[in-house]
């Protein structure tokens, strides 16, 4: 996917929310959906199971309008977190411009977080993308849970943030940190423009 098309004057950012099952990826999108004016958002597509787990993926297109003369669109995707949907995850990752890794802050979910992070790395490699070249931010979700149940952002940084990418504490259910995370990944993605993006 072409991030910036100077001919059609379009900027399209594909951002994928990645992470283990039940970490809050879809919740992030729901919160964003609720805050974006009707005129700016497209229909949110969500394929879920009866137990409300993401079956295939969620998709939320956001039209930011004309920015510096460019028609700017963000496409937000989530992947199904459950291990057995890896083919779908790989498919959704294709052409991603940036990844938000949504980690579950609960201490007992640390292994799932690590496994998912490794899965992200391997799936990107499948597409020939080195995770070190891909804009990635971490979101430590569920920080509203009782302190004894969760790891602090510092602990999570130590455990997950090997490359010191921007990280954000969040409570996606109530919206805390959701837009900060989106803003963080957007900046990283858009800054790639300055570094020279394929036109």
């Amino acid at each position: 996917m072409s991030l910036v098309n100077f001919t059609t004057r379009e900027i399209t950012c594909k951002i994928v929310y990645y992470g283990p099952g039940r970490s809050g990826k879809t919740t992030n999108l729901h919160y964003i959906y609720g805050r974006v004016p009707d005129s700016r958002r497209g229909r949110m597509v969500s394929l879920a199971t009866q137990t409300d787990r993401t079956l295939f993926f969620d998709f939320l297109p956001i039209d930011l309008g004309q920015i510096s003369g460019f028609s700017t669109r963000f496409q937000l995707y989530t992947v199904p977190g459950q291990v057995y949907y890896n083919a779908t995850r790989r498919l959704v990752l294709q052409g991603a411009d940036g990844v938000v890794f949504v980690a579950d802050s609960q201490a007992r979910q640390l292994d799932e977080n690590l496994e998912s992070l490794q899965n992200l790395q391997s799936n990107l490699l499948e597409h020939g993308v080195d995770i070190r070249t891909m804009p990635v931010v971490l979101q430590y979700n569920k920080q509203d849970l009782p302190r004894e149940l969760i790891l602090s952002p510092a602990d999570l940084d130590d455990a997950l943030n090997f490359r010191s990418v921007p990280s954000f504490r969040a409570d996606a259910l109530h919206g805390q940190g959701v837009f900060e995370t989106l803003k963080g990944i957007s900046e990283l993605v858009l800054k790639k423009l300055a570094a020279g993006s394929p036109a």
Partner: peptide, 30 residues
């Protein structure tokens, strides 16, 4: 208005990221 603030931030970022001359041309076209 979280979205508004987000939009403003993105606008600044795009403004910095897109080469200034391209932005001028694009705005003139618009």
């Amino acid at each position: 208005d979280e979205f508004g603030a987000f939009l403003a931030d993105v606008t600044v970022t795009v403004g910095k990221a897109v080469e200034a001359w391209r932005a001028r041309v694009a705005e003139a076209m618009l």
